[in-house]
Amino acid sequence: DSQTPSKTRKKAQSKKTLKKVIVCVDVGSSLNKILYQVEGHDVRYMVMEPEHLTLPPSSVASLPSDSGMGRPSDNAWIRFKKGEECHAVGRCAHDFKAFVNFKTLKWQIATPKILGALGAIAEREKLGSSFSLDLGVLLPWGEISSTEQLESELKSSLRGFYFRSTRLKVKLERYKCVPEGSGIAMWTGMNQSSDLAQNNIAFLMFGHRNTSGLFFRRGSLSRAESSTTSLGFYDLIDKMREKVAGLERKDLLRA
């Protein structure tokens, strides 16, 4: 009987509630945009360069071992398991001269980018090695059919992955993937002065890689009429470079 309180404390500690983090990620081709909220704190944001680069296991020695004086988001790289290939994301991949491959679909490289962002958030907010997660992801309308595949990848990877040398275990409690432009549509629908439920309304999302159109008939999304094209600001920049000598893509992007 004298050991009962000790056992009770250990049992309570083992069932200790994980800190909750709500994260929304826009896996962009010009920037990765992240909004997040740690339980009990205000909403914060983070941006990361769009590059991703897969490197062999032997590259570990060449990758940053910690953030040092820099930001965790600038020194982000992950491994799904020790001894496997490394995935540099954001500024870290940019420093290795990675480039954005516009032929690769966003969802196909979303997992390492999201894990890199989560690792940076965990370090920035001192979350420790375990926390629970509600995750929202934005994808172009043309890729929204892949949301279940992305969810399966994320669930498997979040059970245990390495952010640099730190192993993280994240409990994915909620996952939602919606088309780019949905936020504007939802905001419009919640606006009392809106007649979204009575009219036919189109929402256009002009992105760096592509442009999506979401068409609503009396408040319901018309899947047959919604679509994504491959025309984005990337093509506009090419046209500008053709007309003006000496313009570099990186300078135009920065402007």
Rank of each mutant, 00 (worst) to 15 (best):
I109K: 08
A76F: 03
A185I: 09
V100N: 01
T228M: 12
E84R: 08
R223D: 15
C92F: 05
Q108K: 09
V100P: 02
S29Y: 14
S194C: 04
S165P: 02
G183S: 13
R218G: 02
G181V: 06
D195G: 01
G90Y: 07
K10F: 06
A61Q: 02
G160Y: 09
C24W: 04
S2V: 10
S65F: 09
R217F: 14
L135A: 01
E125N: 10
I121T: 10
K20G: 02
N210F: 04
E180G: 03
L31V: 00
E123T: 04
K15V: 01
G213R: 11
K97T: 10
L105I: 02
F96K: 14
E153P: 08
A98W: 02
I237W: 05
S30V: 06
S65G: 07
S29Q: 10
R159L: 14
G207P: 01
T54G: 08
L18E: 15
R167F: 04
I78F: 06
R218F: 14
V100Y: 00
D95P: 05
R217N: 13
S14C: 02
V60I: 04
D74N: 02
R249D: 08
S157H: 14
G142P: 04
E49C: 06
Q192T: 02
R124Q: 12
G160P: 03
L158C: 11
E49Y: 01
P50A: 01
S212W: 07
T229D: 12
S58D: 11
F131Q: 12
M48F: 04
S182W: 03
S182D: 00
S145N: 12
S182M: 10
A88P: 05
V27N: 09
F233Q: 13
F80I: 14
I237C: 01
S152N: 07
S230G: 13
A110S: 00
Y36H: 08
H87Q: 10
R79Y: 03
S65I: 04
K82D: 03
V23F: 03
W187H: 15
L105Y: 00
K169M: 11
N210I: 08
V21S: 09
V244N: 11
R44E: 15
K103L: 08
K33Q: 02
F163V: 09
R217L: 11
S220I: 15
P50K: 02
W107N: 00
